[in-house]
């Protein structure tokens, strides 16, 4: 069996603040993204605002990229973050697809 090699580089002092801020903004931008999609589905916003929603998702991706680089992630963490970002992108869409289906079924 090959012994796994774990490398844990030290985080530079000046990197801590950007790390915490970017990690927080991953979720905050994620909330904006999901929130705008919801408002559009509720017809409180025009469809053109999808651009804005995806823009926030883009910012989310950027923050995630920045975070994973700054904490010197191993390949596995990088993959975990990619999975999480795809999940963020798709969850509101899956959710509203399901909601529409169930409303058609139970409310008409």
């Amino acid at each position: 069996m090959i012994e796994p090699l774990y490398i844990r580089p030290v985080i530079a002092i000046n990197d801590f603040l950007p790390i915490f801020v970017s990690a927080a903004f991953i979720l905050i931008f994620g909330l904006f993204y999901a929130g705008i999609v919801t408002m559009i589905k509720m017809k409180k916003m025009k469809k053109v605002y999808y651009i804005l929603a995806y823009f926030f998702w883009g910012l989310q991706i950027y923050c995630t990229y920045f975070l994973t680089m700054t904490i010197h992630s191993q390949p596995f963490t990088v993959k975990a973050m990619i999975v999480a970002m795809i999940a963020y992108l798709s969850v509101p869409h899956i959710y509203f697809y399901l909601i529409t289906k169930s409303e058609q079924r139970y409310e008409n």
């Binding site: 979720l27 994620g30 929130g35 919801t38 589905k41 999975v83 999940a87 963020y88 959710y95 909601i99």
Partner: peptide
Amino acid sequence: ALEPLPLVGMFVHVLY
């Protein structure tokens, strides 16, 4: 990394 997802879901759900 996945744990916040259901929380976003619950938020969207109440709002919607």
